[in-house]
Amino acid sequence: MSLLADADPRLSRYQQLRDVIVARIVDGSWRAGDAIPTEAELSREAGIAVGTVRKAIDLLVAEGILDRVQGRGTFVRRPSLDRSLFRFFRLTDGDGRQAVPQARILSRSRAPCPTEAAEALGLPPGAPALRLERLRLDGATPLLAEEIWLAPDRFAPLEDLAPDAFGDLLYPLYERLCGEVVAMADETLTASGASPALAARLGLPAGAPVMVIERIARGYDRHPIEWRRSHGAAERFRYRVEIR
């Protein structure tokens, strides 16, 4: 049977192959870091020209789902999004290398999902969802206060996990315990003043300027996995972009 037997016939052949490859990644046939079959092998399995296969692969590389490695092949990309906030809030160790801050789970509960998070996750407003409150620290100094919302059916294993078992990075935990791989994310940056409760959590004066980063994390098929809002002191925020 052709690799494209169940593909949407309304799409072009390279788009059909693109969707089939993504489906194989989502169902776990090919995991992050795995090599996918060669273009010649995919051409035979799909019954299409190598040039059409290459066009599908080019599209997936451009989308950040696959990586080509010269002389080795094409691999399912493993993003490092768990560390990406720290291009904004720089944290280095004693040798000047970028470090990952410590994380502390402050609370975990099922709660009615607020409208903004529900819309991002594709849930009805007020639907039950898993809410995590987390503090990220540089030593003893609070760096980021985070509110995280997750669909409870996909993240049920986290409900009984001991708080100290979450570790400093959540996305490897999502993959290991829940089979959910974060492949991409959309982020929005705004500025605000710290509420009294937030200021107390971050060790700031009430009303102090804070940066707000809202993130929708998505899987390889672009379905939403996580909605997150992070607050950090504006004085520690750095944004750099190279314009050519």
Rank of each mutant, 00 (worst) to 15 (best):
D186M: 03
R236N: 14
A49Y: 02
A56E: 07
R229C: 14
S109P: 02
D95E: 12
P152F: 00
F75R: 06
R228K: 12
L158T: 12
P152N: 02
D93S: 10
E119K: 11
P101S: 10
P128Q: 10
R228D: 03
A99R: 13
L81D: 01
L170C: 05
R176P: 04
I36D: 01
G179Q: 08
Y239K: 08
V22P: 06
T190G: 14
A46L: 09
E63L: 13
A185Q: 13
F166N: 03
R77P: 02
A145H: 14
P196G: 05
A40L: 07
Y239P: 01
A185N: 07
A191M: 13
V26I: 14
R229S: 04
L130W: 01
G203D: 07
R77Y: 05
A191I: 13
A206E: 15
S80K: 03
A199E: 05
V53Y: 00
R108C: 07
L143M: 11
K55Y: 02
E41D: 12
I57P: 04
R54S: 12
D221W: 08
Q70R: 15
A197C: 03
R44P: 07
P152C: 04
R229N: 07
L81T: 07
L60M: 06
A208F: 01
I213T: 08
G47H: 07
G207A: 05
G96C: 08
A118W: 02
P157I: 04
L85I: 11
A46V: 09
L130A: 10
E175D: 14
V241L: 09
R31N: 12
W30L: 13
L169C: 11
A151S: 13
E116K: 14
P172M: 05
V53A: 01
P209T: 10
D82Q: 10
R240S: 13
L204T: 02
R97L: 09
D153V: 04
V181R: 15
L137R: 15
L173G: 08
C113K: 09
A197E: 15
G193H: 10
Q102M: 08
A162V: 08
G193I: 02
Q98C: 01
F155E: 03
V22F: 05
D160I: 00
L130R: 05
G139P: 15
I216V: 15
G94S: 13
P128R: 03
D82F: 02
G73W: 03
D164H: 14
L60A: 06
A199F: 04
M1F: 04
A99H: 06
A99S: 13
R68W: 00
F75P: 04
R134L: 09
F86Q: 03
V76Q: 08
R54W: 00
G51W: 01
D221Q: 12
L177E: 14
F86A: 02
L137M: 15
L170I: 11
A191G: 12
V182Y: 01
P124N: 09
